[in-house]
Amino acid sequence: MIELRNVTKLYPNGTKGLNQINLTFGEGEFIVIVGLSGAGKSTLLRSINRLHDISEGDILIDGKSITSAKGRQLRLIRRNIGMIFQSFNLVKRSSVLRNVLAGRVGYHSTLRTMTGRFPERDMNLAFEALNRVNIIEKAYSRADELSGGQQQRVAIARVLAQEAKIILADEPVASLDPLTTKQVMDDLKKINLELGITTIVNLHYVDLARQYATRIVGLRGGQVVYDGPVAEATDEIFAEIYGRPIEEDELLGARRA
């Protein structure tokens, strides 16, 4: 369970990235956060695993405050939260397997991980994760030999190997074409359903959000303007979130046509 209590983020230049946000995400939910760029989607997501520090309020992960956690405590909380990025964030020169194993380092001592001797169980986890996203045959290829969609699937495998209970995905399909977008979103949905991992995704495309989410959160100017089930998120609601009617480039289907 993730609880955000009165979360406010002030940037050094005085602008408010997030303004008094109160949200609770339950286990197994598939939440999509929508909003214009600059609405605070990314800031919100990055606050949950504290890649960004917040100025006011508190964020609780399974009852523990990540806001006040330090050092090892913070790392232990982060270990349970996997993150997927728009630009994949793989080490391009390392092998796919090594990138996936990098998700395991939080579980072991520094020395053990640096000598590269991961236990048998970790190896099995890594291969199983790769198998789940259907790229096990690429395990020993260099990450930069893979296509964008494949690289994002490696990133998903890394999160799976991490045995995360929560997945945060920050615009995971923004740099992919429509076909691979569908594959990656399907992978995320499948993992959410089969393993019951709470998944929070930032998305730009309205139709994708409707297709995959169980719950939609709309952000505008750093404030929550909509929070509810996907069925109730009508075109009028989206128009309100965006402050204007939905435009062509916010629909993935339009691009495919």
Partner: peptide, 14 residues
């Protein structure tokens, strides 16, 4: 590229 650093940081690496 600082992306991988962020990825490792968010997975709880020291």
């Amino acid at each position: 590229d600082k992306g991988p650093v962020e990825a490792l940081l968010s997975s709880g690496a020291n």
